[in-house]
Design a protein around this nucleic acid. Sequence first.
DNA 1: GAAACGAGCAACTAAAAGGTTGCCTATCAG
DNA 2: CTGATAGGCAACCTTTTAGTTGCTCGTTTC
Lengths: 99, 99
Amino acid sequence: MFAALGDETRLALLGRLYGGERMSITELSVGARMTRQAVSKHLRVLERARLVHASREGRESLYAFDPAPVEEMRVYLEGVSAQWDGVLGRLKAFVEGSV
Amino acid sequence: MFAALGDETRLALLGRLYGGERMSITELSVGARMTRQAVSKHLRVLERARLVHASREGRESLYAFDPAPVEEMRVYLEGVSAQWDGVLGRLKAFVEGSV
DNA sequence: GAAACGAGCAACTAAAAGGTTGCCTATCAG
DNA sequence: CTGATAGGCAACCTTTTAGTTGCTCGTTTC
């Protein structure tokens, strides 16, 4: 997931889908300075990371933002922060104890 | 920052520094199945992302985990989640209103 | 002071990622 | 039915990234 987000183009795509609107590949390609195929590839990367999902509708694939992974990451980082505070606390205690 | 975290090796390095201990490059290279130079390069990537910082001590560079960017990201994602809930709410209202 | 250790730098190779082009299929509109 | 539109697939090129090797330099240690 970090890898999927670690690309400006993909972040931009997510930004456009973030409004909640479902968009086709061609639609998403309009602003981008790259071909439809390139956009398509990026969307698949995002899809593999579950940040986005597609649904075929007639002749077009509509992509939509998927918030679950973001939420999961948020929760995970909360844990990281909390544990790190614990680590700092123990280090502080250790240093003070050894003076 | 996403790009920096989007690499297994670097995540592993962060994992080892996460304990709060400062470690030298050679120390960090021990478990890794790659050369010291490769580890060194990864550490610089992490350093550029401010996830880690080094301090020279005699002939060795000691690297330490830096929690600030993680915290920033956590806060940022909080905003993302909150706004997204807003987006969903508006969409729901719109759909119901248009029926 | 010499051997050993920790690390930096530069050049190089290999592999992966980002992008393009060309062609083909399915769907929609006239 | 025909033409235009949306997209998939595969081959290809180019740039970046991950990793290695060889050499050099400063710091310890004996």
